[in-house]
C-alpha cells in the first residue's frame, strides 16, 4: 500500500484528488492500479504496452526510482510516490 501524489495537470482525471491510496506492493503495481481505477488518466501515464511514458518521472520522496529499482521498487504504507511531468521544450 502506498500513496500516490497526482500532479496538478493530471488531477482532472482523478476527480481533482491530490493524493490517492493504492494497494500495490511495487511502483509498477501501484501505477497500474491507479491507471485501472482512472481510465482517462491511463494514456497520460502508460503506453499501449503498459510501460511508463518517458515524459513522466517517478520519485519516491525526493529520490528518482531510476536510482532505486525502477518500477520494481517496493512500496509500503509509508511510501509516497510522486508523479512528476517532465517539463521541457524549446524552440
Amino acid at each position: 500500500m502506498a500513496k500516490i501524489s497526482i500532479p496538478t495537470p493530471l488531477r482532472r482525471f482523478t476527480d481533482n484528488e491530490r493524493q490517492l491510496v493504492t494497494q500495490g506492493s511495487t511502483v509498477q503495481e501501484a501505477i497500474q492500479e491507479l491507471a485501472d481505477q482512472y481510465p482517462d488518466l491511463k494514456p497520460h501515464l502508460l503506453n499501449d504496452e503498459g510501460q511508463l511514458k518517458p515524459f513522466i518521472r517517478i520519485y519516491i520522496g525526493d529520490e528518482d526510482i531510476k536510482a532505486l529499482q525502477n518500477e520494481d521498487t517496493p512500496v509500503d504504507d509509508e511510501t509516497i510516490i510522486n508523479l512528476i511531468p517532465a517539463i521541457a521544450g524549446g524552440q
Binding site: L10, H44, F55, G89, G90
Partner: peptide, 21 residues
C-alpha cells in the same frame, strides 16, 4: 519560457512534452 530570436509559437519539442490543463 522564452524563445530567443524565434517567434512565440510552440515547437515540436514543446508539443512532445506538453501536459493537458
Amino acid at each position: 519560457h522564452s524563445h530567443p530570436d524565434h517567434p512565440a509559437i510552440p515547437s515540436i519539442h514543446d508539443l512532445r512534452q506538453a501536459m493537458p490543463f
